[in-house]
């Protein structure tokens, strides 16, 4: 092989790698952006966004790179569906992982607990 071609190919590879390098992310975002987009395109559908967030958290936890806000995002969807115990656990996890979220997470945990008490106080009919 012509050495000049070899050098060009190596430089081209370096160039491409440099380009790719900048698009590597610190956190594992999965398909969060497109799932959120789909949710806004069709707000009645929550399940695909739930599924996407669940997958990101599952994979992110293994590598400890769950993006900021996503435990809370997932928790809030569960909160709106009335799955309060799960949402409390997620808000607590967000708070533990990101101390910056403390004030908001404590508000959300209090609100979830309030609703949970209301449900438990109401006798089953």
């Amino acid at each position: 092989m012509n050495p000049r071609i070899l050098v060009s190919v190596i430089l081209l590879l370096l160039f491409v790698m440099e380009g790719c390098h900048r698009h590597q992310t610190v956190y594992h975002w999965g398909d969060y952006e497109s799932a959120l987009y789909q949710h806004y395109a069709n707000p009645a559908e929550v399940e695909p966004l739930l599924k996407s967030l669940r997958a990101i958290i599952n994979r992110g936890e293994r590598k400890r790179n769950v993006p900021p806000g996503l435990y809370a995002e997932y928790g809030y969807l569960l909160f709106t569906m009335g799955r309060l115990k799960e949402s409390i656990a997620l808000f607590a996890k967000e708070k533990r992982t990101w101390p910056e979220s403390t004030l908001l997470m404590e508000k959300l945990i209090r609100e979830s607990e309030k609703r949970l008490e209301l449900i438990e106080e109401t006798p089953n009919s």
Binding site: P67, P68, E73, Y76, W98
Partner: peptide, 25 residues
């Protein structure tokens, strides 16, 4: 649609980004 693209670069730049959908709701 725009909102779905806003968090990633800001979080990657090293900030805690409040979850955009939660904030909106």
């Amino acid at each position: 649609y725009f909102l779905s693209t806003a968090s990633l670069p800001v979080a990657e730049q090293g900030y805690y980004v409040f979850p955009v959908n939660l904030v909106k709701r």
